[in-house]
Amino acid sequence: MNQNELYQQVILSHNKSPKNFGKPATFTHWAEGFNPLCGDHYFIYLTIEDDVIKNVFFEGEGCAISKASASLMTESLKNKTISDVESIIKKFHDYMTLSQGNLKDLGKISVLSGVKDYPARIKCATISWHTMKQAIETPVSE
């Protein structure tokens, strides 16, 4: 595969201008994800109401693959129920780490499909997804 397929235009533009980037004034759940090996470092902030993700933001620093993946994820998970989100996370994770299934029915997220062929970069794509899973389970303490 040509490396240009890894750095597709959609990925480059999400890296340049990430969606839902920053720390919101209020949120109900959050988590921090850090990969000390490469320095990728992200925070996910969620507002969960009635088991629905009403709002999702992320902030942090990392490579283009990690940032684009986080940006695409926030776009696709907004206004979805927790159970839907959990099954999408599982689908993404299984595809990336176990080569099971595909990302075709996940909309724009499918631009990340090519990452799977670069074992050294899979963690870049999955860090924000792991952090998302953790955020759902971590309400803000009073």
Binding site: Q3, L6, Y7, C38, G62, C63, A64, I65, Y118, A120, R121, C124
Partner: peptide, 9 residues
Amino acid sequence: IHPHDVGSL
């Protein structure tokens, strides 16, 4: 540009 992207390219 993050070094990992530099390395891959």
